[in-house]
Nucleic acid binder design. Structure first.
Lengths: 237, 237
DNA sequence: TTTACCCTCCCCAGAAATAGCGAGGCAGGG
DNA sequence: CCCTGCCTCGCTATTTCTGGGGAGGGTAAA
C-alpha cells in the first residue's frame, strides 16, 4: 500500500452497522480529498442498498427519474470487468447528456471512477469516486490508488453482503442439471419442442423441468424464469 | 504492498499470450514458495479456460471424472463472495471425500485458498493457491498476502478476459427506450397484457416493440430476446 | 426536404405455452 | 429403510404468443 488506505481498510473491517458503513464512505472521501464516495448495489430481485456522500436530493431525484435505466455508468460497468473512468463512457445520447447536466446541477463532480463488483446470485454493486477537477489531476489520483481501491471496494462489498445476509436466510435457489439445461436451451431461443429434441427427451418431460425451475426461481412464466436464472448466474448462454 | 507481489503485478500486465499467462502462474508459485497456483474459469456450459501448475494428469482426470460437478471448492465459491480456505468448505459428502483423496493422490496439496471472481455475462473464475503444509503455516501465508492476492487474482482475470475478447467482435445493437422498457417488463415476469397496462399503451403497440426488439436482437422468440438483452447488458432487471 | 427511426393503434388465424391432474423408477442421505 | 429429490412419460382445456398484413403522426438528422 502506498497511501494511507492501509489503515482505512482496518476501519472498514470494524464496521458493524449501516451508520458506520455510511461514515466510512465519508471518511474515505476526506482521506482522498475528493467530493464524493459512493457504494451501492442492485440485486436480481430489484432491491437496492446504498451508502455514500451524494446529497439526498440527488439520490431522490435519481430514483424518481429512474435514472438507473439510462445512467451510462451503470451500463458501462455492467458490460465490463475493469473499473472505468467516466470519461471513457458513452455520453453521446440525448438522455445521457441530460442526465449528466442534471447530475452536475445536484453537486456531482465532473470526474468519476467506478469499480464494478459482482457477487453470488447475480449481485452487482458499484463503488464510485467522484470529484470536480481536471482530467490530469484525476488521472493521477486514480493511478496512485488504483490497486488499493480494488481492495477497498471489495471490503465495502463484503460488509454490505454481510448486512444483507442477516436479513435473508436464503442461499438462493439452485437448479438441477436437467433443469439448468432446459432453461439454457430456452434462453438460446429454442422452442420447447426443439429443446426436447436437443435433450433427447419428450416435450412433456421437458415441461416438467421448466415448471420445476419456475417454481424454484419464483418466476411467473418461462421468460421470467430464464431472466432470473441468467441474472442470478445460474445459467450462461 | 508488503511483499514482492508489487513487482509481480507489473509482470502480469505485460503478459500477451497464453504461454506467458501460464508462465506467470509458475512464477507466482515460486515467488510464494508453494505447490500450486491455478487460474481457471468455469462456464457452466462446459467451456473452460485455465492455466496453472497442476499436473496435466490431474487436469485430465478432473475432466474425465466430471469433478466439476462435485468439487466443493467450486460449489463453495459459487455461493460466496469472499475467498475461502478449503478447510472451511463442506467435505462431508461421500463424493467430496472421494474427490479429496483422489486429488491428494495426484499431487494436490492439502491446503488450499481460492478466490472467486465474477465478470460480465455470468463469467465465473477461480484463482487458487495450493500447498502441502500445516494449518498454521498456511493461515500465516494467507494472512500475509490476503489483500495483494485479490489484486493479483483480478489482474489474472483481466488478462484472461482480454484474450477472450479478441475472438469476439461484438458491436451490439441498441434498443429504443420503449423497446427496452417493454423487454424489461417481460424480463420481470409480466405478461404482454400486464406490461401494456404498466406502460400505459395498448397490447398491440407493445407487441410491435417486442417484435422490433426481437428483430434487432436477432432473437427467435420473446424469451430469446429477453435473454439476449440481459446478457448484452442492454436491460437491467 | 427527404429520409429514417420512433411511437401509437388495428385485425386475424395458427402455433405455442400454461395449469391442472396423473404415473413410476432410481439414487443419495439421515 | 424411508424420504427427498431427480428423471422420465402421459392427458386436456384454456390462455397467450407469433407472424403476417395494415395506418398515421412525430422528431431529428442528413
Amino acid at each position: 500500500m502506498t497511501t494511507g488506505l492501509q489503515d482505512f481498510l482496518e476501519d472498514i473491517q470494524r464496521v458493524e452497522n449501516f451508520e458506520e458503513f455510511q461514515d466510512a464512505t465519508v471518511k474515505l472521501r476526506d482521506l482522498l480529498g475528493i467530493a464524493h464516495v459512493v457504494y451501492h448495489w442492485v440485486n436480481s430481485v430489484g432491491e437496492r442498498f446504498g451508502a455514500g456522500t451524494y446529497s439526498s436530493e440527488w439520490v431522490d431525484r435519481y430514483l424518481e427519474k429512474d435514472y438507473l435505466r439510462m445512467d451510462p455508468v451503470i451500463f458501462g460497468c455492467f458490460q465490463r470487468f475493469t473499473p472505468v473512468s467516466w470519461k471513457q463512457l458513452d455520453w453521446s445520447s440525448k438522455a445521457a447528456k441530460a442526465f449528466y447536466r442534471d447530475a452536475m446541477d445536484y453537486g456531482v463532480g465532473n470526474q468519476g471512477y467506478t469499480i464494478p463488483i459482482r457477487g453470488p446470485n447475480g449481485q452487482f454493486a458499484l463503488f464510485t469516486l467522484n470529484d470536480n477537477t481536471t482530467d490530469d489531476a484525476w488521472d493521477q489520483l486514480i493511478a496512485r490508488n488504483e490497486r488499493d481501491l480494488v481492495v477497498v471496494a471489495h471490503e465495502f462489498n463484503k460488509k454490505a453482503l454481510s448486512f444483507d445476509a442477516q436479513n435473508e436466510v436464503q442461499v438462493g435457489p439452485s437448479l438441477s442439471p436437467r433443469e439448468a439445461s432446459a432453461i439454457t436451451h430456452l434462453a438460446k431461443g429454442l422452442s420447447r419442442s426443439q429443446a426436447a429434441v436437443e435433450m433427447g427427451i419428450s416435450e412433456h418431460t421437458l415441461r416438467v423441468y421448466i415448471e420445476s425451475a419456475r417454481h424454484k426461481l419464483g418466476a411467473m412464466n418461462t421468460t421470467h424464469a430464464v431472466a432470473r436464472a441468467l441474472s442470478m448466474g445460474l445459467i450462461i448462454v
